[in-house]
């Protein structure tokens, strides 16, 4: 779907991005993950033909985005960081305008817009002036304009920015639905957004791609130390749970357990992924295993390492 080769962007003498190369297949949901200023927005704007690259090539669905941007624009729906709305228009007029700009005929958008309104739960506010809507609704209208012309590729730049927790959950669900019918490219600096909605990640920092792959691939290649948390029901016979855990190969330390409501929670230091072994050992010892997980998000650790232990990217 997207083929990017040696793409770079300079603002004057300052490098904002690149050179970067990557491919995105049809039907994939790919996340651009990076700190603020990492070059995510610059990359997405170039993919959406809002900005011209300083060098390199972008091909979308086999069409060169620099040589033939109009063809590419017809295949793309773009939601920038700030939704491109006209506060003086009603929602339905705005969507008609967006559809017509993308070349849709009246009969087509008359059929399509009610579907889009329903899909994004905007039917009740269709006749409302955009300037009077809440931030969450505006964000949904932004998504609606991006999908109204049924594009193959959907580019969403920080789609949950500024939303409250309920709206974030709703937007996440919307994105999951959109994944079913579109190739989706999402940027975010919020790890949970990316990890919960995307199949594959591109981690950007200082204008370069620092890591790429699925969450498992990235964590497998980058993670060498872990903490695992295991919760068991407190045994009646006073068995030595820590002793069971300490014998597992790869476990380097077992902290004192936290006791709560008849359960024991152990934080286990290890030098490899020992979750499977911990599970087997505890169950094999006749203990009731209630919870087993990493203490921290593996992706979070991977991300922080890649971008330099949380240091902000320089661009």
């Amino acid at each position: 779907m997207i083929n990017v080769t040696n793409l770079s962007k300079f603002y004057g003498a300052k490098r904002a991005l690149g050179p970067v190369s990557f491919q995105i297949e049809d039907g994939e949901a790919v996340g651009f993950l990076g700190l603020n200023g990492a070059g995510k927005t610059t990359a997405l704007r170039m993919l959406a033909c809002d900005l011209r690259p300083s060098s390199g090539s972008i091909s979308v669905d086999g069409v060169d985005a620099v040589a033939d941007p109009h063809q590419v624009k017809q295949r793309i729906g773009f939601l920038p960081e700030a939704p491109p709305l006209y506060p003086d228009m009603t929602v339905i007029d705005y969507l008609r305008f967006a559809a017509e700009l993308r070349g849709m005929r009246k009969a087509d958008h008359a059929r399509r817009i009610p579907d889009v309104l329903e899909r994004l739960q905007l039917t009740d506010v269709a006749a409302d002036v955009i300037g009077t809507l809440s931030h969450g609704y505006r964000q949904r209208v932004g998504v609606a304009q991006a999908i109204v012309h049924e594009p193959k590729l959907l580019i969403l730049d920080e789609p949950t920015r500024g939303l409250d927790p309920v709206q974030i959950i709703e937007m996440r669900e919307t994105i999951r639905q959109l994944k079913e019918s579109h190739t989706v490219l999402i940027s975010s600096h919020i790890l949970s957004e990316i990890s919960q909605t995307c199949d594959r990640l591109l981690i950007l920092g200082r204008g370069e791609i620092l890591g790429r792959g699925t969450e498992d691939e990235l964590t497998a290649t980058q993670l060498d130390v872990k903490q695992v948390v295991a919760m068991v029901r407190a045994p009646d016979d006073g068995r030595d749970v820590a002793g069971v855990l300490g014998k597992i190969p790869g476990v380097t330390d077992v902290a004192e357990p936290r006791t709560m409501h008849g359960t024991l929670t152990y934080v286990i230091d290890c030098d490899q992924d020992v979750r499977a072994a911990v599970g087997r050992a505890l169950v094999g010892a006749g203990l009731d295993l209630l919870r087993l997980d990493s203490v921290h998000s593996e992706l979070e650790q991977t991300f922080l390492r890649l971008v330099g232990e949380g240091g902000h990217a320089s661009n």
Binding site: D50, I76, A98
Partner: peptide, 10 residues
């Protein structure tokens, strides 16, 4: 930033 809509339309 509504100009983005025009700029990213064909």
């Amino acid at each position: 930033q509504s100009l983005v809509l025009l700029n990213t339309s064909p």
